[in-house]
Computed example of a mutant assay.
Amino acid sequence: MTKKMTIKDVAKAIGVSTATISNAFNRPDQLSEALRTRILAQCKELGYVGPSAAGRYLRTGRSGVVGVVLSDRLAHSMNDYVGSHFLSGLAEEFDKAHINMLLLSARDMDQSNRQRLHESMVDGFIVYGSVPSGKTLDHLLRQQKRLIVVDHFLKGYASINIDNRSSSRVITEHALKHNPKKIAIMGLRLNSDTEMKMVQEADLDNLGLTLSIDRLNGTFDALDAAGIARPWNRIWNLPANDHNLASRAAFEALSSPDRPDLFICQSDVIAIATRAMATQMGIKIPDEIKIVGFDGIPQAQNFHPTITTIQQHSTEKGRMAAKLFIDGKTKDDVIMPTELLIGESCP
């Protein structure tokens, strides 16, 4: 049986250092294109396919893999515009650094066999979204690896966020210029309920999505400053950022005898569903009702009336999270900018 060639064997056969062989496979920017092409061709002739990941881990203590922990199911994160563009931004920066991503769902990480796999495979974690206290969070913290959180805060660790409360206040103040008489808030994960329904103040709990509670408080800040009562009888809560759920909530609100004339939606997905339902019901926007959203996804601007919303930059948020991880800046708290986009739904 032929002995498998090591990187030392290959370096000796070609007449270069082991570092040069390693760079040809793992850090091409360190070599000229001509030298790298020659080395890779000679390696192919020798039947050498590159340094093993296990060997690299033993030498450096690093696997070159980052665990990206998603608070939602993987399918949702891949299909959601905001989530998928965040991942795209991560990938852009990690590709440049020759780092791989391992996508993980926080909902599946509390199984002991999977925990052991994660511990051995990754150099650290980027957590996207809120992971509540419990086994998953304890597992991440126990490893004492590099950890960065996005759209959430965790004491002692770097974070990437937008100012959800301030941004929500800005868009609410804009909407209040039209002097609405009946305001509806279409909330997203304001509590831990798994059903779409209206909520009262007593229904809010600490298991709600942090960014949604911040957005709700931003709306309340604007209402309080304007001397307008908080609309506790017209706050809907959706357990997921889902078009069908949002359509049901919108139909319920639009069909009520006390129909709202302003819909403050905590995501553009909810605003788009509300726009579609109102159009289907023959309700004119913005003449009879006005709608504002949050996120700035393209679908909100692709059809008329375009949605007034808060634009956040999800791809840049991903790039920033990757840069913090690569640079080892594990204590920084970064607040990304947002902008008010005024559309036709609430001019």
Rank of each mutant, 00 (worst) to 15 (best):
K3Q: 15
I14Y: 06
G15K: 02
A19N: 11
T20V: 08
T20P: 01
I21L: 13
N23E: 01
A24V: 10
F25E: 00
R27M: 09
A34M: 09
R36A: 08
R36Q: 11
R36H: 08
Q42M: 11
Y48M: 02
A53N: 08
A53M: 10
A54F: 14
G55V: 05
R62H: 15
G64E: 01
G64M: 02
V69P: 03
A75E: 13
S77Y: 10
S77G: 08
M78F: 15
Y81S: 06
H85V: 05
D95M: 15
D95F: 13
H98N: 15
H98G: 07
I99C: 00
S105H: 14
A106D: 09
D108V: 03
M109H: 11
D110K: 13
D110T: 12
R114D: 12
R114V: 15
E119K: 11
F125A: 09
S130E: 11
S130G: 05
K135C: 12
Q143E: 14
Q144S: 14
K155W: 12
K155G: 09
Y157E: 05
A158N: 03
I160S: 00
I162E: 02
N164Y: 10
S166V: 08
S167Y: 05
E173M: 04
H174R: 06
L176N: 01
H178Q: 12
N179Q: 10
I185K: 03
M186R: 01
R189F: 06
N191V: 05
S192C: 07
D193E: 07
E195Y: 12
E195D: 09
M198V: 05
Q200L: 14
A202I: 10
D203P: 00
D205T: 00
L211G: 04
L211T: 15
N233P: 01
N237P: 00
A240G: 06
D242Y: 02
H243P: 05
A246D: 02
A250S: 15
F251Q: 13
E252T: 11
P257V: 04
R259N: 01
F263Q: 00
I270W: 01
I272F: 09
A273K: 09
T274G: 05
T274C: 11
T279R: 10
K284M: 04
F294N: 01
F294S: 03
D295V: 10
I297V: 15
N302R: 13
T306D: 05
T315N: 12
G318L: 11
M320D: 06
A322N: 01
L324E: 03
G328L: 09
D333F: 13
V334T: 00
V334G: 01
L340I: 06
G343T: 06
G343Q: 08
